[in-house]
């Protein structure tokens, strides 16, 4: 009989939910055990349903409000900094590294918070067409994003797999394998924040179990892989994605403006200028 320190559930639609399969797996950290949900195919479908709803709410939230909700998240992480540092240290990080990770996390949230009401100015523009037309290219968020987080134990890396798409108004299904204890702890802060339900769903498990379902699901608009997969895995994801012309980004850039470009659809609107 092992001693379970904490049982985590997936975070979907603003609620903590068990995997409908009832399956879990355990992770041992410093002789303590965490029970984590093993996400099933059905769980993915439920998460997509929730994310579609979350997308409607989040994408229609004003940039000004999105900015404030993101900024408040940074305040919450700051308030909980000690517990994050402790958890990272339980995973074996040094205190210095753990502190650095949380400091960077906070800094990055603040950076993206400030981007929430500016990216449209940076990524869109008026086009100087030759005739008597007003012509502007602006951006829409692409929709529901599935984001596979990296294998390092890090709140900051988790955030960098979420923030770029979330900031521009996408809803995100964040999926973690190795980093899932951190991810599911982070879900608690999301739950206490003002993100509308379904805008960010956080799940854990084995990616290979759900790889096919994710890449074939037509209502997932984009798959972002922040983790190097073996070639067969990537190939089958991209093959599946081609059936609905789904966008797949393997290890997309997380630098500056490049970080958000994959999550934007450019819409160009023309209108005559006349009397």
């Amino acid at each position: 009989m092992i001693d379970i320190k904490k049982t985590y559930k997936n975070y979907v639609g603003g609620k903590y939910v068990r995997s409908e399969s009832g399956k879990t797996y355990t992770k041992e950290l410093k002789n303590e055990f965490y029970e984590l949900p093993l996400t099933s195919k059905k769980d993915i479908r439920d998460a997509v349903t929730s994310s579609k709803d979350g997308y409607k709410k989040w994408s229609s939230t004003t940039p000004y409000l999105r900015m404030q909700i993101l900024y408040r998240l940074s305040e919450m992480i700051e308030g909980n900094k000690e517990s994050y540092v402790e958890l990272l240290m339980d995973h074996g990080l040094t205190k210095q590294k753990a502190n650095k990770d949380i400091d960077e996390s906070i800094q990055n949230i603040v950076w993206f918070a400030g981007l929430a009401d500016k990216w449209e100015q940076l990524a869109g523009n008026l086009n100087p067409v030759s005739e008597e037309y007003f012509n502007i290219s602006h951006q829409n968020p692409i929709g529901v994003v599935f984001s596979l987080s990296g294998s390092n134990i890090s709140l900051n890396e988790l955030l960098m797999s979420i923030l770029p798409s979330l900031t521009v108004g996408c809803s995100v299904i964040s999926y973690s394998e190795e980093n899932s204890v951190v991810a599911l702890k982070f879900a608690e802060d999301i739950n206490n924040s003002d993100f509308p339900s379904g805008s960010l769903n956080i799940l854990s498990g084995k990616f290979e179990n759900i790889l096919d379902d994710v890449s074939k699901h037509v209502e997932i608009n984009l798959v972002a892989l922040h983790k190097e997969l073996d070639n067969d895995g990537l190939k089958s994801i991209e093959e599946n994605a081609s059936e609905s012309v789904k966008r797949v980004f393997s290890q997309p850039s997380i630098e500056g403006l490049s970080s958000i470009l994959p999550y934007l659809e450019t819409k160009t609107v023309w209108h005559p200028k006349g009397t």
Partner: peptide, 11 residues
């Protein structure tokens, strides 16, 4: 009432 005209399209 139905006097809407778009001048660019007309031209």
């Amino acid at each position: 009432n139905d006097s809407r005209i778009d001048s660019v399209g007309l031209n």
